[in-house]
Simulated scan of single mutants.
Amino acid sequence: MRTPRSLARSAVAAVCAAGMLAAGVVDTQTAHAASSNPLDELGRPTSETIARVNAFADQPYVPVQVGNALRTAVAFFAGSGEMGGPPLPKDAPAFTQFAWPTVSGNCIGKGMHSTASAIAVPGPAKSPAPGAKAGQTTFVFTALGTPAAAQKQGLMKVYWVNLNTLRTGVTPLGNNGINPTGPSTLSATADTGSGRVLAVVDGSVRTTDRTCAFAPTAASINVR
């Protein structure tokens, strides 16, 4: 069975091939070759694919937010840059990363965009704060490149459903002291119950100097 990450990589590959054709940066024969083999043996975009996606994203007719999302997605699936967020400690609990990164335009400054990633940590786990008991899930959202998070939050929420029990919930993310000097990191623990949980995080992060809106991202989590 293919994992959500491999499915997402395939989607990125398809978008890459379509983008190369739409941009007119390659001829039909070259595009066909790229579309049939845009990934390496580990399922990551090749250097040629990355270059062509970035070239497409830089075209003047591509909206800024779309080009930024394309560059972010291809970098994420290539495993480059800071897409994974801050390094985790060696004794970090098992976690599920949300399927794709999300971007907030001009969040750091004019023309400077913040890329964010989210993870879900099923309990029992003492960290990240505020921690999770068995049958609970802690959600963490990190906006890279931003200053510290403001104390007052409430605009970023996780919408989740437990597919085994059909329990649903909406959990606001708050400032629980993770990365107190930045980047802005929000978290919260939800009583999801055990089972397969689908979650979508959506909303805005309040930093110490502005409010940044992020597009939604999703995850499928196995909660014990």
Score class of each variant (00 low, 15 high):
118 A>N: 08
33 A>M: 08
184 S>L: 07
68 N>F: 11
5 R>L: 10
11 A>I: 06
114 S>P: 04
169 G>W: 05
104 S>L: 09
109 G>E: 09
79 G>C: 12
34 A>F: 15
196 R>Q: 04
170 V>H: 12
45 P>W: 10
47 S>E: 15
211 T>I: 15
20 M>K: 01
215 A>F: 14
207 T>A: 11
18 A>C: 12
23 A>F: 06
5 R>G: 04
77 F>V: 06
174 G>N: 14
198 L>E: 15
218 A>L: 13
202 D>N: 03
140 V>Y: 10
115 T>M: 10
124 P>G: 04
154 G>T: 13
217 T>W: 09
199 A>Q: 04
201 V>I: 14
97 Q>Y: 01
37 N>A: 15
7 L>I: 14
49 T>M: 11
165 T>V: 09
185 T>E: 10
17 A>D: 00
47 S>T: 13
40 D>K: 10
96 T>C: 00
175 N>P: 10
153 Q>M: 08
189 T>Y: 12
73 A>T: 14
90 K>W: 12
80 S>V: 15
137 T>V: 02
147 P>G: 13
71 R>H: 03
108 I>K: 04
4 P>L: 06
195 G>P: 09
97 Q>A: 14
132 A>H: 06
209 D>L: 11
182 G>Q: 04
31 A>V: 00
209 D>V: 09
76 F>S: 05
51 A>S: 07
40 D>C: 13
26 V>M: 07
200 V>M: 13
113 H>G: 06
69 A>S: 10
87 P>F: 07
220 S>C: 12
145 G>S: 10
105 G>H: 00
107 C>R: 09
164 N>H: 11
195 G>I: 02
54 N>R: 13
173 L>K: 02
83 M>Y: 13
